[in-house]
Every structure is written in structure tokens, then in C-alpha cells.
Computed example of a mutant assay.
Amino acid sequence: MDTSGSLSITHLIFNASPLVQIVMLFLLGLSIASWTIIFSKSNSYKAARAKADEFEDKFWSGIDLNNLYQECIKKGQDLIGLEVIYSSGFKEFVRLINSGPADQEVVMDGTYRQMKVSQSREMENLESHLATLATIGSISPYIGLFGTVWGIMHAFIALAAVKNATLSMVAPPIAEALIATAMGLFAAIPAVMFYNRFVSKVEALENRYINFMDEFATILNRRLVRVRSEMNMKNNDVPQTNTQQPSSSYSQKSYNHPLGEEQHSPYSRARANTHSSPYQTPGVEGDRYRNTSRSPLQGQ
């Protein structure tokens, strides 16, 4: 109580019972941890959305997928979100193609599985510490209520020994106890509010990643069908006089991916006869996919 007779919050805190002070200190720590997570995750989700926008703009611009993969490799450990999913899927696709004349369904299934693993790891990073934020929002009010109940209980026990209790004697200990409840609410309300907001952001990014995986797998499957059909057509045009010669269609990685290996394989010959790279993203078509794949929540 200051010179004017009014109660000061700092005076009430420093004169509270030891257990109530411990509760207040613990709630202060929870509040600091909560706001640290809030600022950290806000920056993470903002960066993830920006990187996703940048990568999708580049992906749907018509760039050759091999060149895009090389750009991702140069970044090393700085890959985020869609870049990680694309790099892992493209790398597995190349490995399966170069391993031999594997069935098309096997190639696409293996590619999608690898992208799914990378997507799950990215989601784990996005969802990290959200459980802590939810826990803080759930337990903080109860911890503050415990401090309040304990403080009021001791206040009434002390007043029981006084014959003539006045309001000035009752008010300070009760006010000390109520501060614990206020601190519990102060820690819980932002934690719950931002937890719900972050969950919606994570769901929007997850849907965005899944949509990209489906679109990327569709592009690879469509181009693989086209290239193999062109290879079959060229093989059917081979003169009968060459049938006695040993074929090198499968001995020299006949399904070689454009990563700079055998340039005289049937794959590369079929690729050379196309007007564009068989693994090049569609520019105009990409604008339509890109505009429809982004959900309204991503701009939040």
C-alpha cells in the first residue's frame, strides 16, 4: 500500500505468500515461452508461404525440371517445403528410371512414396512446438486458479484469529491471490488464440504440398508415357536386317533421364525429336494449375 492508501500491484506481488509467488513466477515463465513460440512460428510460416509461392512461380513457368533440380541441389541444406518435396521426388524418379526398364506403375509409386516421406518430415517441422502452445493454453488458467484458491484460503485462516476484521484487512490478501488468476489468463488467452491460427496455417500448407505432389506426379507420369510411346514407335521402325545385331536398348540405360549420361540412348533420341523437353513444366497450363491450387487461407 503506497502513501495515498491505494494498493499497488507490485506491492501485492512482493508481499504475497511464497507459494503464490512461485505460481506467479511459473506463469510468467509460461507466458514468455508462449510468446517466444508465437513469434518463432509466425516467422516460420511466413517464410514457408513465401518459399512456396516463389517455387511454384518458377515451377509453373515452363522451366526444365532437370535445371530446376540442379538449382535446388545448389541450395544444399537451405531447402524448405516444396523444394524438399520436389528434390526428393525427382531424385527418386531419376534413380528408378536409370535402374532399368521398370514398370511405369512401379516408377510412379516409388516417386510418390518418396515425396510423401519428405512431405511428412516437412509437416513435422511445421507442427513442432504447437503441442507446447496448446498445453500452455490449457493448464495456465488452472495453475492461476490454484494460486488464487491457496491465497484466499490462507487469507481467511489468518482472519479467523482476528476478532474484528475490516475490509482493509481482507482486501490485500484476496487481491494478491486474484493476481495469480489474471496472470494465468494472460498466459492462456494468446496461446489458445495463436494455436488455432497456426493450426489453420499448417492445414493450408499441408493441402498445398499434397496438391503439388499430385500435380508433379501427374506431369511425370504423362511425360513418361509420351517418351516411352515415342521410343516404342522408333523401335518398331527399325529395319528387319538389324534384328540379328545385339540390341543395346536396355544395356545402356535405355530409360536414361536427362542428367548428362548416355546421350545416344533411345531415350535421348526420342527426346531430341520433341519440340520441348519431355520433363518441362507447362507454362500456360501451369498458370491455371497454380491459380487453382492455392487456397484462400494461404494469404492470411
Score class of each variant (00 low, 15 high):
T281M: 11
G184W: 01
L12F: 00
G286T: 11
S138F: 11
V20P: 02
K234T: 01
T132Q: 09
V238H: 00
H264M: 12
M213P: 01
Q21D: 06
S120E: 08
N164D: 15
N98Q: 08
S8D: 13
E127C: 02
I38S: 04
F156T: 02
L185F: 12
A48M: 14
A131Y: 01
Y69G: 03
S254G: 15
L68Q: 09
S229Y: 12
T148V: 04
A270G: 08
S6D: 05
V170D: 04
L30N: 06
A161F: 00
S254R: 12
T241I: 14
M24S: 11
R197I: 13
S268H: 13
I219G: 02
R121Y: 13
L28C: 11
S140G: 04
S40I: 09
E92V: 10
E230Y: 10
M193A: 14
I152F: 03
P266R: 08
S40Q: 14
Y209H: 08
S249A: 15
F14M: 10
Y279P: 05
Q298I: 14
T218P: 00
Y69N: 10
M153R: 04
I85C: 05
G151S: 03
S31L: 11
L79V: 06
C72A: 01
N291E: 06
G144L: 09
T218S: 03
I38W: 05
T274Y: 15
A177Q: 10
V107W: 00
L297H: 06
R222I: 07
M115Y: 10
Y69S: 10
P239A: 06
N236F: 06
M183T: 03
M193S: 13
Q280A: 10
G76K: 11
E127L: 10
H275D: 15
S247F: 07
R226T: 14
S229D: 15
N125S: 14
V162P: 04
V107A: 13
A177L: 07
L7S: 01
G62I: 05
S249R: 11
V84C: 12
M24T: 07
P101W: 05
L145I: 07
Y250M: 13
N196S: 10
